[in-house]
Design a binder for these strands. Structure first.
Lengths: 226, 226
DNA sequence: TGTACATCAGTGAACGCGCGTTCACTGATGTAC
DNA sequence: TGTACATCAGTGAACGCGCGTTCACTGATGTAC
């Protein structure tokens, strides 16, 4: 066993392998690493409150001030992470929806994908849909934000059902999409925030919810009761 | 204008009128005042994070350590507030539900009362249904907690519909109740956490959600698709 | 090929803040004699 | 009726902590001459 000729300090910091410093012109690399670190921290701790600037810096293997080189403040950083999550969720849903040509079945597949995303990434889901606007301003800024794009895809899917004759022609696609979204969000968010509730079998419950929604969409528009 | 003969310090603290100290044996009065202060703070600030021990003490007109005379820690205090909120919500729903003898209409009234409670007390609703278990352990402890009692009332209401022949006899009342609850929670919580989303008219949306749920409940049980 | 220098990635130390909680205390209130 | 004293409600000051953020800096990297 030979001893290393150059012996640096052997005391391990919070990150065992010190991060190699980026070379000139590659400073943007850290920006990417920071975002990835936030995602990892969220997934590992399952708690947005534990994702502090200091924790992020530790995870990357860097000191806190470095983060301000790439993001104006914590808010801006979270905002970017949120936008990426929306894109990921949208991708998952669209991919699932394309697995069937039948518009009703396609909607069901989308619903499953939505719920599955939430249950697989509960804290990500929390940040997207359950946080205060101050924490994560999902739909705040632009009408064509990542979140609105994902929602528009759902409206389109409902509209395809109407066009194909699966749903009544006088159904408002937006209203139908909102109804579906709220139903899916209801089960997803409650499963996340109330894990100790004696839930029935989740698959059976999801089937019932999908059936209920399909039933509601197919019904002709009713007189509104006063 | 006469000057007060006894001139105490005229510097106003955070609470203008200093709270009168409880007399011997009436120490429990502060306990009640603390809980009321938490409710007021929640309603006023709309943010559980601003409800700190210090803020509560200020609101009551007392110093922080006084609170520990009546509650072991902050967790215990929040727990008691949560239990009361559940009781209030349960009351509101039951009162509304009794306004009709028709089991379906009674369920609709219950649904409206649930949503109305959430929209009228968004931060209270947040604490009950949208917080992390660590923050507010709603169903944690007892099977017959305040939250479970309220849920059982919903199951009973669905069961009355089955008994009256309004819903299929093979409908599982618990499954039906969970489906309704998740649907109502979906719209309530999204309206709370995403206020900037371009929501359609809330009354119309609620009517559609209620109609969808009624439709789903009335459907005979289906074969479960694989 | 060698050297002075501007650039740029990242650091170390500190700021002020609000948090939950603890501790030894004060002083009014009621009671026993 | 008067006084010493135990009780009890509430206080003042402080603890250690983690937070977001700022500031002046260091030292490696590439470039110009």
């Amino acid at each position: 066993v030979t001893t290393s000729p150059v012996s640096g300090p052997q005391v391990a910091g919070p990150q065992v392998a010190a991060r190699a410093r980026a070379r000139r012109g590659e400073g943007e690399r850290l920006r990417e690493e920071i975002i990835e670190a936030v995602e990892r921290l969220l997934a590992r701790t399952g708690d947005i409150d534990l994702v502090s600037i200091r924790a992020i810096a530790d995870e990357v293997g860097v000191t806190p001030p470095s983060i301000y080189r790439h993001f104006a403040d914590k808010f801006t950083l979270v905002q970017e992470v949120v936008a990426r999550h929306f894109a990921t969720l949208d991708d998952a849903i669209e991919t699932a929806g394309r697995r069937s040509d039948d518009p009703v079945e396609s909607l069901r597949l989308r619903g499953r994908a939505y719920v599955d995303f939430g249950l697989a990434n509960p804290e990500h889901y929390r940040v997207l849909f359950m946080c205060k606007t101050a924490d994560a301003p999902a739909f705040e800024d632009l009408a064509d934000s990542a979140g609105m794009q994902a929602f528009q895809h759902l409206v389109d899917a409902v509209q395809r059902g109407i066009d194909a004759g699966a749903f009544p022609p006088d159904l408002d696609a937006t209203l139908g999409a909102v109804t579906i979204w709220t139903a899916l969000h209801g089960i997803t968010s409650l499963l996340i925030s109330m894990p100790t509730f004696p839930w029935p079998d989740v698959d059976g419950l999801l089937d019932r919810i999908c059936a209920t929604q399909a039933c509601g969409l197919m019904e002709p528009a009713r007189e509104v009761r006063s």
